[in-house]
Nucleic acid binder design. Structure first.
Lengths: 196, 196
DNA sequence: ACTATCTCCAACTGCTTGGTTGGAATCATG
DNA sequence: CATGATTCCAACCAAGCAGTTGGAGATAGT
């Protein structure tokens, strides 16, 4: 049987995404990644160097994707609340992305060089620019700083996934608490926030 | 010299708070806690059982405190934006509390029994009640679900501390980005959100 | 002052884990 | 098909870690 090193690499990366999203860097076990990928552990060191570099690779790929996943074009910025809704949808279908983002926040913090920092910064700044245009077009309250607004959008959109334990304590046993209601709630909140 | 076991306990707990806030459960080292408290490691096992129970104790104390730190009385709920400002202040002066909250989110999640769950739930529900009263008094938009509003308040208030790397990428090199401006921004956002 | 009990600590144990190695199987090339 | 490079893997290693132990110093009751 022929070797398929690309496939092995991909298997490892996918397994690593799962493991790191679930347990973070410190909590992740290299053995588990290898085992769940059905690949020998040693491959990780040949392909990716070591655990730290594997983590960096995972963050690099996934967070790049996260920043660009729901594009905020100038047209999309005209309806910022709906955009928040779409990010919310993205978090629902890709729960490990938000987790990686938070692991990055806690384990790396804002003090050191980040994976894919330049590229992600550009992504964010492009979005800020779209918001600026929407402000000039009168579709978004021009009194708010566009960057602050962008940050608020990010946080509103992940309101339901960032602190599940708080959600649990607040929402325990509410029949009306459905995914659709949650989406509608963040969209409504965003709408009030950006209204001119 | 007389023993002062209470003091040793407190030294250990304080050191544990620092260590767990900085590194989470998996990342925290029992040796480091003991060393930074200036106490022998074995004391931890005598006083707190094991690492896990120490972590639970730390979360229990600190998160109880966090939930009750900035009380949301019915009167305070009348000016919800200013309340958000006060929570923001609290996060600025107690940065490890928010970190513990996020470590709890990532490492425990919403699926298992939480430390001090009942007490914290009561804290939160009391706050929701205050918001409900403010809504009836016409000081807060009555169309929004009070619990959702509470969740949004929590998230807005920690907008600047939860994802420092995103803040960094968004705000890099902005002279106008001061603590006062940040506070004013979250207060303004909250004001628009809750306005009837 | 004697003894039982509590507080403290240095050194130790055993397991987990990141990382390595030596060699077998597979492939590409001349 | 011979040779050298590459992919794969089981077993191994050393370090770091949570948790333990045995005994020394301090205290309180009698």
């Amino acid at each position: 049987m022929a070797w398929d090193t690309e496939k092995t690499k991909r298997l490892l990366l996918d397994a690593a995404v799962e493991e790191f999203a679930a347990s973070g860097f410190q909590g992740a076990r290299v053995d588990r990644i290898a085992k769940s990928a059905g690949v020998n552990k040693e491959r990780i060191y040949q392909y990716f160097g070591n655990k730290e570099q594997l983590f960096a690779t995972v963050l690099d790929c996934q967070l790049k994707e996260l920043a660009g996943a729901v594009p905020l074009t100038p047209e999309a910025a005209a309806d910022l609340p709906e955009h928040v809704g779409r990010i919310y949808d993205y978090h629902v279908t890709h729960p490990h992305f938000a987790r990686l983002l938070h692991w990055e926040a806690l384990e790396l913090g804002g003090d050191c060089e980040l994976p894919a920092e330049e590229e992600r910064t550009l992504h964010y700044l492009a979005k800020v620019d779209s918001i600026l245009q929407a402000q000039q077009a009168g579709e978004v309250d021009p009194r708010l700083d566009a960057r602050v607004l962008m940050l608020a959008v990010v946080h509103l959109a992940q309101m339901w996934s960032a602190l599940p334990q708080v959600v649990k304590m607040l929402m325990s046993g509410s029949a009306a608490d459905t995914p659709e209601a949650r989406r509608a709630a963040v969209v409504a909140l965003a709408a009030k926030m950006v209204a001119p």
